Structure formats: structure tokens, C-alpha cells
Simulated assay, not measured.
Amino acid sequence: MSFFPGNDPDAGDAAAADLIEQLIIPRTSDIGGFEVRRALPTAKRRLVGPFIFFDRMGPARLEAGAALDVRPHPHIGLSTVTYLFDGDIKHRDSLGTELVIRPGDVNLMTAGRGIVHSERTPENLRGGPLSLSGLQTWLALPSDREEIDPAFHHTGAPALPTFDEAGASGRVVIGSFLGLKAPVPTFSGTLYVDLRLDANARFPFPAGEEERAAYILTGRVTIAGDTFTENQLLVFRPGDPITLAAGPEGCHLMLFGGDAMEGKRYIWWNFVSSSQERIEQAKQEWKTGRFDIVPGDEEEFIPLPSG
């Protein structure tokens, strides 16, 4: 999912409520009948905490014979996070990892100095109709960790802490929330929470993180008298406590954020770095075949984009 060639989205107009720093309307790309909405990065907002990339995949129903086939491609300077609501994806990488991620699991792949991976529909699911829905996000690494050895960490859904109280239920995907801590490793302060609110429920989003945002997956949310709808990204002002009020149909959101990065990050294609020169180096390394191959998926790859 990290190669969907959608353009950066346009940022929304000035915030409708005093508590909203930015409202971002993702730009939608259709990739062979599969919709992807890219909310980060934008020209006006590059990061929320360490989150430098936020893609909403689907929900989609692929016709019989169609499949997800994201060929091997490289990354540097970031961790990718794949989190699904529906469907299965087979992950392979140049470390030799090969596994299927299922709804509620977390795949955290840390590129560091360089990794290559592919994401495809599992062989046993090909041939019939497929459903797929989820998120892929990228976490920028602190500048002193950008060149660490690549690593892969899979956390199954049962290992993630859950909560269910007062009309709010969900799962802590990364970081700590409501006294619960996810076992997924982090390199800087990071929060990622899958939250569902019952009809008309109210839920406080405390100002514990330096930067915070919410992506509305389904339903409507009212904040300080203003109502926001699905597939909108709300970036909140630092330090302000927020109360999320669900509409009569309830809502599903992802809360995310964390510590602000200590400096500027450059992003080009699948590469993230605090150094523009390092990105240029990575371009040449991919172009000249100096990245590692993906065992079991050696026949194809995504060429370096032109321009």
C-alpha cells in the first residue's frame, strides 16, 4: 500500500472551530477500482507527531479475479504501519519476513537505512471477490535513528489492549491511552488508537500529546458545536482538551499523534529523511539495484519514478 500514486491532498479552509488547527480533506485516487484517500502529507501540513503519511485504503470490494499486487519497493528513514479493518494482505520483505496480516493486527516495518517489501493478496484468496479496508501510515524516525538496521515487528490483534466503557470502545494500536499500553515498539512519543463511539456518545480526547489529530472513518463527530463527517482529518490545537460527540448513527475514528519531530523531514516517493542528500543517495541505490531483494518475490519490482 505504500506505493499508491495518489497526489498530495488539498488542505481545507480555515478551521471551523477554535479547537481545530486544520481541517484536511483527503484527495481520492482510484487504483483499478480500489479507492485510496491520502490525508498526509499536504502542502500545508507535513506531519502530526511522527506521522508523515496517512492513507485510508477502501473500503473496497474487488471483483473476482482482481487482487492487490504492490510489487517490491524500497523505503528509508521511516517505519510503516499497516492496520486493517477488513481483508488479508501478505507481506514479504528483504529481511526474509513472510506473513499474512489480518484485521486488528499491526505490522510495523522499520526501514532505517533501507528495506524492500511487497504487499499482495494471499494466494489462497485469489480468484474470488475480495474485500479490503484499512490504513497505512508512516512514522518518521528521529534523526539519530534514521540509519538503524531495518527490522520488522508483527503484533497480533489479541495482544493489543482494548477498552469498552461509557459508549466508547476501541483498541490501543501504538502508545499509551486510558492507562493501557500497546506492546508495539516506538522510537519517539507516538499515539495511535482505534476508537468507536456509540450513538450520541461523548468522549474526551485529553491534551497529553504534543500534537494530536483524528481521522473520521465513518459517521459524524461534533466538536465545540461544529460537525465533521467521514473522511475528514482534524488536527487539534496543542494543549486544548477535546470532547468528541458522536452523531445519532455513532462513529468510527482513528486518534493519532505524538511528539513533534525535532527538525524538518524531506519526503520523496517512499523515502523519508532529515537530509535531502540522503534521499538522492537512496534514489541512486534503487536505480542501480543496490537494495536487497525480497526472497520469494524476486521477479518484479517498482521502478524509480521519473522526475
Rank of each mutant, 00 (worst) to 15 (best):
residue 59 P to V: 08
residue 283 K to Q: 12
residue 189 G to P: 01
residue 18 D to Q: 12
residue 60 A to P: 04
residue 245 A to K: 13
residue 165 E to C: 08
residue 141 L to I: 05
residue 123 E to P: 05
residue 106 V to N: 01
residue 240 D to I: 15
residue 171 R to S: 09
residue 174 I to N: 00
residue 182 A to E: 11
residue 96 G to K: 05
residue 63 E to G: 08
residue 100 V to R: 13
residue 12 G to W: 02
residue 9 P to R: 00
residue 24 I to V: 11
residue 79 S to Q: 10
residue 251 C to F: 08
residue 20 I to A: 13
residue 33 G to E: 08
residue 281 Q to M: 08
residue 195 L to T: 11
residue 157 A to Q: 13
residue 47 L to S: 11
residue 104 G to D: 07
residue 36 V to P: 01
residue 271 F to P: 04
residue 249 E to I: 07
residue 175 G to M: 03
residue 165 E to A: 15
residue 257 G to A: 02
residue 124 N to T: 14
residue 103 P to K: 10
residue 27 R to C: 02
residue 290 R to M: 06
residue 294 V to A: 00
residue 19 L to P: 00
residue 47 L to W: 09
residue 164 D to A: 13
residue 201 A to P: 10
residue 261 M to H: 11
residue 84 L to H: 04
residue 262 E to I: 08
residue 51 F to L: 06
residue 277 E to L: 10
residue 40 L to E: 06
residue 11 A to Q: 00
residue 69 D to K: 15
residue 226 D to C: 08
residue 284 Q to S: 14
residue 196 R to T: 12
residue 265 R to W: 08
residue 146 E to R: 09
residue 55 D to P: 09
residue 150 P to M: 07
residue 91 H to Y: 03
residue 83 Y to A: 02
residue 25 I to M: 13
residue 19 L to D: 14
residue 187 F to V: 00
residue 172 V to H: 05
residue 73 H to C: 06
residue 188 S to T: 14
residue 241 P to Q: 07
residue 90 K to I: 10
residue 205 F to A: 09
residue 210 E to K: 10
residue 140 A to M: 01
residue 224 A to Q: 13
residue 73 H to M: 08
residue 107 N to A: 10
residue 136 Q to V: 01
residue 233 L to R: 01
residue 182 A to T: 07
residue 169 S to I: 01
residue 126 R to E: 10
residue 200 N to H: 15
residue 224 A to P: 02
residue 121 T to P: 11
residue 102 R to S: 14
residue 232 Q to F: 04
residue 130 L to E: 02
residue 91 H to G: 01
residue 105 D to A: 12
residue 279 I to A: 15
residue 270 N to P: 04
residue 98 E to N: 14
residue 152 F to V: 10
residue 38 R to G: 03
residue 275 S to W: 03
residue 47 L to A: 14
residue 274 S to I: 05
residue 294 V to T: 02
residue 12 G to V: 05
residue 68 L to W: 03
residue 189 G to K: 05
residue 147 E to C: 02
